[in-house]
Design a binder for these strands. Structure first.
Lengths: 189, 189
DNA sequence: ACGACTTGCCTAAAGGCTTTAGGTAACTGC
DNA sequence: GCAGTTACCTAAAGCCTTTAGGCAAGTCGT
């Protein structure tokens, strides 16, 4: 009965890898147990239940994404910051589709409060420092940026833009150009 | 052994209702059988398997959404058309969250080809007739609009904007204003 | 109207995932 | 080296999926 050394942390990390390999929806307590070559019941000492496991993976992904965002924003401003931050989302989703899907999990209020969600909002707001927007337009713009990033990435990942010219990289660049132009010229009510 | 009169069609329709009530992820062959007061195995004459059922619900939702979109676009142009079409997505998602989630299901190529996906793209392109955009910018714009609509709606539905001022209706209106302004003034490469 | 065919719904059964209860063996520290 | 903790185990119940095979309720030809 050799001990494997399970921890909540290691389970979440392995769950994230599993998600990237087989899809977040296919992440299961059972599959994770197989990956550690351990009986299923053993995981229940480290994780409350299946939903708890998924939540932990989601929190991990949000954390990673926020870290990457912060790194990208450091020392950048204006359109440069906008583009770098946008690319963080897109690249992360392409490198880690399962984790990105996990980050979209609807969290209960408690988990949401403990998540890196706030950091994401703060960073988006920081990008807008390079543009001249007062409240409430700033909040509207934060929400727009969040919508575009998330919407584009999830449509692209889901194959919504597949096999049609022009290629998605080109579109992505032009969308960032367009957002930059829009933020510099935000219509007043 | 009274016959209930199951059909693929009725199953998809009832599945869509079930999705709106308990969430698309909770739609299960088993739950659907209970709803018809019929044994689970009976459904397998009308539906290949669980995934097939979900696909049929997704196709139904895409169809409904396209129908609403077409109705909204009839007799409208420019910003008027843009706003009406955008509201179709948002309203549909709010009225039918389960169906909307179903519409996001990643379809295999065969199902995707048979879906109303093409109609959606065509309608978005039709909206752009009110603006002066040549290819390839038109395609970029189609993708941007799709991203914003889907991204905003799914973030709002997921509670991403909850409990923070200003309210989401206000943001939604201002985002449509912003998109209109952007399309009238699309930045040239 | 009645027999034959079709088919809609059934029972039975196997396999997988989740979750809980309770046991045993491996580490930890005095 | 012993006591206590804890990591992992076995066992079992419950629910969902899916397939195989059966009977009765419809439908159709004559």
């Amino acid at each position: 009965m050799a001990r494997v050394g399970l921890t909540t942390e290691r389970l979440a990390r392995a769950g994230a890898e599993l998600a990237d390999e087989v899809g977040f929806a296919q992440v299961t307590v059972s599959a994770l147990a197989k990956r550690f070559d351990v009986k299923v019941a053993s995981l229940y000492s480290h994780v409350k239940n299946s939903h708890d496991l998924k939540t932990k993976i989601a929190l991990l992904a949000l954390e990673e994404l926020a870290d990457r965002g912060a790194a990208a924003l450091a020392g950048r401003a204006g359109k440069d910051a906008l583009a770098a931050f946008a690319n963080v989302y897109r690249d992360y989703a392409r490198e880690h589709p399962g984790r990105y899907a996990a980050a979209q999990l609807r969290l209960d209020p408690e988990a949401a409060a403990a998540s890196a969600g706030g950091r994401h909002a703060q960073m988006t707001r920081a990008i807008l420092r390079g543009y001249d927007l007062a409240e409430p337009d700033q909040t509207h713009a934060v929400r727009l940026l969040g919508s575009v990033f998330h919407g584009y990435v999830s449509l692209e990942l889901g194959g919504g833009f597949s096999h049609s010219a022009p290629d998605t990289q080109e579109t992505w660049s032009r969308i960032i150009d367009a957002l930059d132009a829009l933020l510099r010229n935000w219509p007043t009510a």
